[in-house]
Design a protein around this nucleic acid. Structure first.
Length: 635
RNA sequence: GCUCCGUUAGCUCAGCUGGAUAGAGCGUUGGACUACGAAUCCAAAGGCCGGAGGUUCGAAUCCUCCACGGAGCGCCA
């Protein structure tokens, strides 16, 4: 994931050089419109100072215009004087003074500018600039905060969930599922053309084991006594699959040879599991555009052909066992799994994911070279995955995001190395690693174990807590932090459950608009709204909310760049908090009053807020209810 | 042993492409409904931002080292 590029270390130091900005996501200018107006004034002033010879500089460096934490510091504050100190050879306070004195403000939007602290510029803007935001939001409607669909021209793929088709979606997939979906929604809102893909591991030993288990359960349905082998799937759902199969084929499979029944059993197993997986994801409000079959890669010969490509590029070798890179000489501990399975490591064809060098420098970050063909010539999981990722590149995506569980972290450098060894741009492939979630109930951890048949399914979780609550809890934290999911708190209709705070904010807006209509006042809408009505929005709290609303587009863009949905969520929290506070503070000066112009102005504000929240919730995939039932009374 | 992730208020977590006095929710304490929804609000208390160095006008944020917690380290997928 790009924000951790320097720390995860994949490669920032090699291919991305010092460019920390993920550049790929930036389309058109999505800066907050208010901020843009401020920057225009600053830039004009600097140009004017340069023209008059007061200061000299080559180019204006990147500087920031931000909302100061302390409202006494104005509506916006700007650090340009400090940033340009070196370029102009002037001290920050001196430069700040010059800017204040010679301000060029053609649109007359600035009401005050002053130097503060070590050289900050604190600016205040005309009320009309704030008020205009309400109309802009309402005119944009459901598109507010979003870029025009596909406006960036970037093709993006997000691969997520990709649960094995050997069983239901369980709690271990939940975080990645919601995260991947929210990232997809974010990228879509940021104007990209997003494809959501599910990679089906329908090849290899696991599905074979599934097939065997299905067949045993099938035999059982005809009275046979069966015993499941180590690793086979004991859970109930396999019996259901066997029943379905029986209904379809009767007893016709009983007399077949294994070569005949096994492919059929695998097929029905995968089909039924995928059906269940899709149905669970639908409950979670998640859908994929494409399901990509690993088996199809094998069938099309793409797995063997990628090995040929590597061989042709001279980045493979044959060896009896793994070859580690020399430097550091990392020795594995005796307890490592590699040591444990050493007797099964018989050598084969290796890909130089670690030892490949250019100009006598190691180029890749993997710890050791990886087998891509076993000694008997069969490909491994990685080989298929390399073929799969090459396939993604071939399909022409500008950005590919893989949402992986943290247990796949070790897989990341291998794929990256593999792509680099094909000469592909690794920056186009980003990884989001979602850390482990510990599920607790009654203070005790609920273990996730597919093998024992005691898995806690995502479907159960959603039934218990509701889709919005689950989604919210998974999205409110960054992907790379572990956390405990408390099943007890989750279904409390109370303050322990923060999603209600958000939804109540929206419902309250809806309720006010409804109440106004009951009182015979209907909001006139953005087109009929007059300047005189808007001009009644003068309270500092009102301006603050308008200012914040205008930032949604920027927040969305930035969150999309970082692949971090939680920024949008915190944006909502602040806005809702401001609103509740405002609402309570001015209870004696209500939104709907006898003063018709003021009422219209405030209804515009509330409508704009409701619209903003609805848009933001939509980008997160959380519903925006018009009405909520009161919670049960506390005892 | 090696790699990666984390460490911020009593608890759960934001803030990290460096900015002014470090934030939110929960919990605690004390207040606010004859008014548009009290699933709300207001106030108080609560912090050597894990530790130590470094970089500079300025560090929770960037760099180095250390400590603690977690995950991974298979020719499984």
């Amino acid at each position: 994931m790009c924000t951790r590029s320097s720390k995860t270390g994949t490669w920032a130091s090699i291919t991305a050089s010092s460019d920390r900005s993920p550049g790929w996501a930036r389309g058109s200018n999505t800066e907050d419109p208010m901020k843009q107006q401020v920057k225009a004034v600053i830039n004009a002033t600097l140009a004017s100072l340069k023209a008059s010879g007061a200061i000299t500089f080559d180019a204006i460096p990147t500087y920031s215009v931000e909302v100061p934490k302390n409202p006494e510091h104005g509506d916006w504050s700007c650090n340009v004087a400090m940033v340009m100190s070196k370029a102009t050879g002037k001290k920050s306070p001196e430069l700040a003074d010059l800017i204040v004195k010679s301000l060029v403000d053609p649109g007359a939007i600035i009401t005050s500018i002053e130097k503060a602290g070590p050289g900050f510029l604190n600016l205040r803007l005309k009320d009309s600039v704030f008020q205009g935001v309400a109309r802009e939001v309402l005119k944009a409607g459901q598109h507010f905060g979003r870029q025009q669909p596909k406006s960036t021209g970037k093709k993006v793929m997000v691969e997520f969930v990709s649960a094995n088709p050997t069983g239901p979606v369980h709690i271990g997939h939940a975080r990645g599922a919601f995260m991947g979906d929210a990232i997809s929604r974010l990228l879509d809102a940021a104007g990209h053309d997003v494809t959501r893909e599910f990679y089906i591991n329908d090849s290899g030993k696991q599905v074979e084991t599934l097939g065997r288990t299905v067949f045993k359960r099938y035999q059982q349905l005809f009275g046979a006594t069966v015993e499941l082998a180590e690793g086979e799937y004991p859970a109930e759902y396999v019996i259901d699959i066997a029943k379905t199969w029986k209904a379809e084929v009767g007893d016709s499979m009983l007399q077949k040879t294994e070569a005949e029944w096994l492919p059929k059993a695998i097929e029905v197993g995968i089909r039924e599991n995928l059906k269940a997986i899709r149905s669970t994801l639908a409950m979670a409000n998640i859908s994929h555009d494409t399901f990509f079959s690993e088996k199809s890669l094998h069938d099309a010969g793409k797995v063997t052909s990628i090995v040929d490509v590597y061989k042709a590029r001279g980045v493979t070798y044959e060896a009896a066992e793994g070859k580690r890179r020399e430097k550091g000489d990392k020795v594995r501990s005796e307890e490592s799994k590699a040591a444990k399975y050493a007797d099964k490591q018989l050598g084969g064809t290796f890909l130089m994911t670690a030892t490949y060098q250019e100009n006598e420098k190691y180029l890749l970050k993997d710890e050791e070279d990886r087998v891509i063909l076993r000694h008997d010539g069969t490909p491994v999981y990685l080989t298929a995955d390399l073929a799969y990722h090459k396939e993604k590149y071939d399909r022409g995506y500008d950005l590919m995001v893989d949402v992986f569980g943290a247990d796949h972290a070790g897989h990341v450098p291998r794929i990256q190395s593999g792509m680099t060894l094909l000469g592909l741009d690794q920056k186009k492939l980003q990884f989001v690693l979602v850390q482990i979630v510990r599920i607790t109930r009654n203070g005790e951890e609920v273990k996730v174990s597919k093998r024992k048949g005691t898995l806690f399914e995502l479907a159960e979780l959603i039934e218990e807590a509701g889709a919005d609550v689950c989604r919210f809890i998974f999205l409110m934290k960054t992907a790379n932090a572990q956390f405990d999911f408390d099943l007890d708190a989750v279904h409390k209709q109370s303050k322990d459950n923060p999603v209600f705070y958000f939804q109540y904010g929206h419902a309250r807006c809806a309720s006010i608009l409804k109440k106004a209509i009951e009182k015979g006042v209907t909001f006139v809408g953005p087109d009929a709204l007059t300047e005189a009505q808007l001009a009644r929005l003068v309270l500092p709290e009102e301006k603050m909310m308008l200012k914040k609303m205008s930032q949604l587009g920027e927040v969305v863009q930035s969150a999309a760049d970082k692949l971090e949905p939680h920024h949008v969520l915190y944006f909502c929290q602040e806005l809702i908090g401001d609103f509740h506070s405002y609402y309570t503070k001015y209870k004696s000066d209500p939104i709907v009053s006898e003063d018709k112009d003021k009422t219209q102005g405030r209804l515009a504000l509330v409508s704009a807020l409701k619209q903003t929240l609805q848009c933001a919730f939509g980008i997160l995939g959380i519903s925006a209810p018009e009405h909520m039932e009161a919670p049960p009374e506390e005892e």
